[in-house]
Amino acid sequence: MSAPHLLASGSGDEFEAPGLEIFHWGPLFPDGPSWLHWLTKPTLIVGLCAILVVLFAWRAFAGAKLVPRGVQNVGEVAYLFVRDQVARPMLGKDGDRWMPFLFSTFFFILFMNWMGVVPVLYLPVNSHIAFPIVFAICVYLMMLFLGIKNQGLVGYFKNMMFPPGLPKALYVILAPIELLSNLILRPFTHSVRLFANMFAGHLLLAFFASVAYWFLVEKLTVLGAGVGVVGFLMTIVMTGFELFIQALQAFIFTLLAASYIQSGLHADH
């Protein structure tokens, strides 16, 4: 599969909106040796993003000078943003200790999301639920480990399941809700928020782009040209909007990760 398969999706005479097939990427080299079949477009982009984050942090913070120059300026602004908007408000005094994790999480996810609007690549990797779920499971395991380490095995589950100040009989009814909400639905909603936003955004962009291509290039008619122009303009507007949403979702994911880490470090009151 290659990039134009999206644009050629409506092979008949009628326009067909792009569907789920735009997320299915086979091996990049289907004719290559079978040990190379793991290399698909998403895995390639993930590797690229990892390298990008490493390069960015390297350029920004290796050999940092007192008077910042070049990339170090950007890196310091980014560091201050994550520290003052995520780490310190959510984690308080522990915030600075968790900065390496939060910084790299934020930028890894941000780059992975922004790949959705980078020409040629055009795939937000997090629109495959496997990737957000792995991030969410990492945070979840860390939360469980910290909680059991800091509050004790019994204490952690007691703090989680039994909020103080309720009549005794209600605990029997409400404890299952708390347990399910904190242990199962937390990582689920954590990852689905990111996944659903990227998925819908990519579908939206692909839809408007294919409308523009279909009505302006493939089947250019007098009546259809208006629709095509609208699709073209919407593609541009939506690309800007997606840039914003992608940054916002990376921010929210990091914010929630910090919040879950905090709930492991200290019992909430």
Binding site: P89, M90, L180, L185, R186, F188, S259
Partner: peptide
């Protein structure tokens, strides 16, 4: 102020999962 803000943010983010888990159970 930080801890109040934290409480508010935690609450706002965990409300949907509470409601979903109530309905699920």
């Amino acid at each position: 102020i930080d801890s109040e803000h934290r409480g508010f943010a935690n609450a706002a983010w965990s409300i949907p999962s509470y409601i979903l888990s109530g309905m699920a159970v």
